[in-house]
Amino acid sequence: MEVRTIKVFTTVDNINLHTQVVDMSMTYGQQFGPTYLDGADVTKIKPHNSHEGKTFYVLPNDDTLRVEAFEYYHTTDPSFLGRYMSALNHTKKWKYPQVNGLTSIKWADNNCYLATALLTLQQIELKFNPPALQDAYYRARAGEAANFCALILAYCNKTVGELGDVRETMSYLFQHANLDSCKRVLNVVCKTCGQQQTTLKGVEAVMYMGTLSYEQFKKGVQIPCTCGKQATKYLVQQESPFVMMSAPPAQYELKHGTFTCASEYTGNYQCGHYKHITSKETLYCIDGALLTKSSEYKGPITDVFYKENSYTTTIK
């Protein structure tokens, strides 16, 4: 009895394709271990004539594949690729409408935090270190965002349907971005203890939790000093293409032309909904596939993004 075979390709990165001759009487799992086709788990399936010449994702289970996976995804987590594939199996079914010149995501599976993050990423200057993220990001900007969303979920250790947080998501993504040249110098002034300067680099240099107003941050924000008295913390120097200011959701007025974009969060910790506000020729609110415009805006804002380049204080 002759062994019926077909020729397929296996890959971990969709760049390096490895030619395989597979036995049609055995499952993919018996031949390769966990195997995925377009995100779908085909591990328990036997090869079919229609699979001839198709590319299958496999887990990096030998040295060659491990090197290829690390170079593309910059992670050695053995569960990463499987999590990416199972997320992709959902995100490829989502709709990605162009809204006001940006790629958004039609609401499904509690994905409003991903839509808000995706919209924000198209408006701030950011370059990702893992080629996987950078490639998928370019495709997302062009309207094909399924891979990018699935990668975000995998890097953030999230599953489809789980509630997510924009600030946490951005923080994970910033860790995989090139923020080497970003720098922030802060000064804390206390009447009792004097003053202390701190220099922050990388992710810490672009994120701040405690106030939404970048102007206020430049002037000074009140913080408790270690001595128990009130101290003032203010920005001395900022070198970065953008800054992200966050605070627990509270009524906040966004003035046209003073910011790049913002995240609105309605609801409580267990259950809520994100919308995205962007400042173009007027203010726009993007909620999944829905767009509304207004000249002014007041609502429960939790993150505001500002364009920056270089700032030095005039406070002496």
Rank of each mutant, 00 (worst) to 15 (best):
K191P: 12
E296I: 12
Y306V: 00
L114S: 04
R66D: 09
L118W: 05
Y208H: 07
K7R: 08
Q195Y: 11
G39H: 13
L151T: 03
S279R: 01
K307S: 15
K92D: 06
K183S: 13
A145T: 04
T116Y: 03
Y214I: 11
K307N: 08
I15P: 05
Y214C: 04
E239R: 12
K158S: 03
S171A: 13
L179K: 06
Y172T: 15
A69L: 13
V12A: 11
L254P: 00
Y311P: 06
L114I: 07
T55V: 14
V12F: 08
S50N: 13
I223D: 12
K92C: 08
N309A: 15
S181P: 07
Q122A: 03
C182V: 06
P78F: 09
L163P: 07
T226C: 09
S171T: 15
L212Y: 03
R83D: 06
P47V: 09
P78A: 10
I15F: 09
L163I: 03
Y208I: 07
Q251F: 14
L235P: 04
D38Y: 09
M244L: 06
P130I: 06
H273C: 00
P300L: 08
I301T: 01
E168C: 07
H48N: 13
G202L: 01
S294I: 15
G299N: 00
P34A: 07
Q222G: 09
Q238F: 01
A289R: 04
Y57I: 11
T19A: 15
T258G: 09
E296A: 14
L121A: 08
T35H: 06
T226Y: 13
E2V: 11
G39K: 05
A231E: 01
S263A: 14
L118H: 03
A150C: 01
P241H: 07
Y297A: 03
K229A: 13
T43N: 10
Y72G: 09
V243G: 01
V221G: 03
Q123G: 04
E296W: 10
Q237S: 14
Q270H: 14
C271W: 14
A108Q: 08
M207C: 14
P97T: 10
P78S: 12
F70S: 15
M207P: 03
E52A: 13
S294C: 10
A205N: 00
G143W: 02
N111K: 03
T266F: 13
C156A: 10
V304C: 05
P47F: 05
K54H: 15
E144W: 07
T278C: 15
P34I: 15
K275F: 00
K93R: 13
Y84V: 05
N157I: 04
Q195M: 15
T199H: 10
A250F: 07
L81T: 11
F80Y: 04
L235F: 01
L81V: 13
K95N: 14
Y28F: 08
N268L: 09
K218G: 01
E204H: 14
G101W: 05
T192N: 13
P97C: 07
D13R: 04
P249W: 01
A150R: 02
W94N: 03
V8Y: 05
Q238H: 02
N61H: 14
K316N: 11
E168A: 09
P248A: 15
V21C: 15
K95A: 11
K280R: 15
K229N: 13
R167C: 04
F242D: 01
A87S: 08
F32I: 10
V3E: 12
L173E: 00
P47I: 07
Y113T: 01
I124G: 04
V58Y: 06
Y73M: 04
K275T: 09
T75G: 04
I315P: 11
N49L: 14
S246L: 00
A262N: 02
N178T: 07
Y284P: 01
D109G: 04
L179H: 02
V206D: 00
L37V: 14
N111P: 03
S240R: 00
K7D: 12
G228Y: 02
R66N: 15
F80W: 06
T75D: 07
V160L: 05
N268D: 12
S25F: 11
G101I: 04
Q30S: 09
Q195P: 15
Q222E: 12
T169Y: 00
T5G: 08
K293P: 14
Y28W: 07
L291C: 08
Y214W: 09
P130S: 08
E68H: 11
L126A: 05
F80H: 05
F242N: 03
D77S: 13
T313F: 11
S295T: 15
C227R: 01
N129D: 12
T169A: 07
T35P: 00
M24S: 13
T5I: 09
A40Q: 14
Q98F: 15
A289E: 11
E296G: 13
W94D: 05
K54T: 12
S310V: 14
K106F: 06
I124W: 00
K106G: 15
T64Y: 10
T103M: 06
R139W: 12
T64P: 13
L291Y: 09
A40I: 10
Y252A: 06
Y274C: 00
P300H: 10
C261I: 02
V185D: 04
D41M: 11
A150L: 03
Q230W: 11
Y306F: 05
C227D: 02
S171P: 00
T75I: 11
A142P: 03
D23G: 14
Y155V: 04
N89G: 12
Q195W: 08
Y234V: 11
L118R: 03
E204C: 07
V243H: 02
Q122P: 04
A108D: 08
R141A: 11
G33C: 04
N157S: 10
F259T: 00
V42H: 14
Y138S: 15
F80T: 04
V3Y: 15
Q270V: 12
F9R: 15
N268P: 08
F32Q: 11
F9S: 11
D23V: 14
Y208D: 06
T75C: 09
F259L: 00
L88S: 05
R184D: 02
T10H: 10
D77G: 04
V22G: 10
P300N: 13
Y265C: 03
Y138F: 10
A136S: 12
V166F: 08
C193H: 02
